[in-house]
Amino acid sequence: MKTRINKTICNIQYFRCGLIMCIILLLTFAGCSSLPKGMETRSLSFAALKMKYARDAQKAHDYTKALLLYTEAYQLYTGVDDIRGKIESGLSIARQFHYLDKPEETQKWISKTDEMIRNNMPELKTLKDILLIEIAFGKEDFNTVISIAGNTTTSNPEHKAEILCYHIASLANLKQDYKLPFSLLLNLLPSLEKKFKKNNMDDPEILSLSYYYLGYITSHIEKNWRKGIEFFEKARHIDRLLDNSYGIGKDLFALGRCMEELGMKQEAIGNYNRAAEVFLLLNDLEMEKKAKSRAIQIASGGQKPF
């Protein structure tokens, strides 16, 4: 009996010791991990802040302000010779010049960053390629888009998805075969969804863009309007989560179009009207007029083809 009691007491003591050890380990782990991950100079912190504000300005379509902030960030990165920062801010500056319709300046900055990429960080070539694709796509130079997209290889799923979006849209517009990139984009979606749910994406807008172009191809090109609605609904859901008004406007317009084709007149009118309101808010008067006139035409029974 006594031996048993002693054994029990002994076990309890062991257990207590183990517990204390665990607590000490946990506290040490927590304490050590609270140490800074690495030294970061003040210039880098400020540059990161400038980049953040510049992105906000860009989101608000204030490209002049964004340009100024990106330039300041570029200078800060130059001060501490942070090549990655210089490349990212340099490309962003080129993008702002493109938005401001200054092709010479755009080209100058692209060349500048291209040199840095080639000499120091070839892995960032994709960023430059995406910018070139964007510019070409904006000019409806689909051949250039296809040629750049075909030569770009990247392991980053977000970059891959973005390039594929422009690629399939360009192929479809030139009436070329888009099946392979289309299926590649479809296969990429689950991993992107997973990253999005974990709030782990660098640019979550890519997911809504992917859904939009899948919907675009399915409905507008393949005339599968019902399937198109599914994709556009998903795109709208993500855009709403991201507060992306421009995307929401486009999604609503596309939904209106699909519903119109399916004979769901009331729903189509509702979507067009909502899209018009969004575009009015964004001061995109052309799109607002387009959406409004579609709604009026459907309501009056006219079926003017697009």
Binding site: R55, Q58, K59, A60, H61, Y63, E88, R95, H98, Y99, L100, D101, T106, L127, I130, L131, E134, I135, F137, G138, E140, E162, C165, Y166, A169, N173, D202, D203, E205, I206, L209, Y212, Y213, Y216, S219, H220, Y246, G247, K250, F253, A254, R257, C258, N283, D284, L285, E286, M287, K290, R294, F306
Partner: peptide
């Protein structure tokens, strides 16, 4: 990283891109 306003082609015409986007 890339932009605030990804180009989304309109459903109204096959080659109608975001016209109001500068540049």
């Amino acid at each position: 990283t890339n932009s605030s306003k990804k180009k989304r082609l309109d459903m109204s015409s096959e080659t109608d891109s975001t016209k109001n986007t500068p540049g």
